[in-house]
């Protein structure tokens, strides 16, 4: 039999397998590949959404360089991303350590349960509640609390003051114990072999020493995973900002995703907005690549 006949008989034998794959591939072709390709194409066009898109080459990207709101949004997202990484690397990890070091199994279960509980609250509710907490006097919770403590000079129109709106946005979610991140750390701690923990105990290491010398190096995989997940999520998620501040006041809290959304659906500049999407794609690919490069092959096992 020649190779072509070979292939033919293989194909005939496994035709039903392709049938099983058909639904998945139909879905991703229609709702993933086609729109993604269309976005890249339209980034090089002027397109008001209704009529025909006109090819304009790199014009959109040149305009982006001089678009001061876009440049400001890049600066903002840089700050937000740095803060998000610091938060996810520290706070859920601390919570997981505290729980892991509890003696009683019941206690471990209940603290985990209580700290995971907020996951059932829809994201929009969390955002709206925080918008209320940061709200103006007299009803905003943070301002009311400062009033109660006699710290009236600390009171602010948190989300409405251009000078502190970005800081207020960063405070949202305090104490920043992300439930999924905490579960991932906790699972990582559980995977550390009992022998290693016993050995450190026999060596007379304090809990603090064990955390620094044993736990943190062995959680390297979890840190790496959360860095990648958090980066991708933070860069593209702008729904929270839309609800909290809508990028304002002015453009004090503008982020690229929200600017893309506003250009498209409020200014009908769909080609320009697609160009912002392409920039975000490139930034995300670059950051993922850098993460993988920097954090590669340094996995630790004892």
């Amino acid at each position: 039999m020649n190779p072509t006949q070979d292939l033919w008989s293989e194909l005939r034998k496994s035709w039903h397998l392709y049938l099983f794959l058909l639904p998945t591939f139909a879905f991703i072709l229609i709702f993933r590949y086609y729109p993604a390709g269309s976005a890249v194409f339209h980034a090089f066009t002027r397109w008001n959404g209704a009529g025909i898109a006109t090819w304009v080459g790199l014009e959109n990207f040149r305009t982006l360089l001089t678009d001061f709101i876009f440049v400001a949004s890049l600066k903002n997202i840089g700050i937000i991303l740095a803060a998000a990484l610091v938060k996810v690397l520290i706070f859920p990890m601390l919570a997981a350590e505290f729980i892991f070091n509890l003696r009683s199994e019941r206690g471990q279960y209940w603290y985990r349960f209580l700290l995971i509980l907020p996951i059932v609250v829809p994201g929009i509710v969390v955002t709206l509640v925080w918008r209320f907490i940061m709200g103006p006097k007299p009803l905003g919770v943070l301002n009311a609390l400062l009033e109660l403590l006699g710290l009236t000079e600390w009171q602010h129109a948190w989300l409405a003051d251009p000078k502190i709106a970005l800081i207020a946005v960063l405070l949202v979610g305090f104490p920043w114990i992300d439930a999924i991140a905490m579960l991932i750390y906790y699972a990582g701690l559980q995977n550390i072999s009992g022998d290693v923990l016993d050995a450190s105990k026999i060596d007379g290491a304090s809990i603090w020493e064990r955390v620094m010398r044993v736990d943190l190096p062995l959680l390297f995989g979890q840190f790496k995973l959360l860095i990648i997940i958090t980066t991708i999520f933070t860069l593209q998620n702008f729904g929270g900002m839309l609800v909290l501040t809508n990028g304002g006041p002015g453009y004090a809290t503008m982020v690229p995703g929200l600017w893309m959304y506003q250009r498209a659906f409020q200014a009908d500049r769909f080609g320009y907005a697609s160009a912002i999407g392409v920039v975000l794609l490139v930034v995300m690919l670059a950051l993922t690549w850098i993460n993988n490069k920097l954090l590669k092959e340094t996995d630790v096992t004892y």
Binding site: L235, Q236, A264, F270, S274, G277, L280, L281, L285
Partner: peptide, 16 residues
């Protein structure tokens, strides 16, 4: 597809 962020396709998906 895991490398392609959903945000990229928001606008064309809407048109589509």
């Amino acid at each position: 597809l895991m490398m392609i962020p959903q945000i990229l396709q928001l606008i064309p998906a809407f048109m589509w």
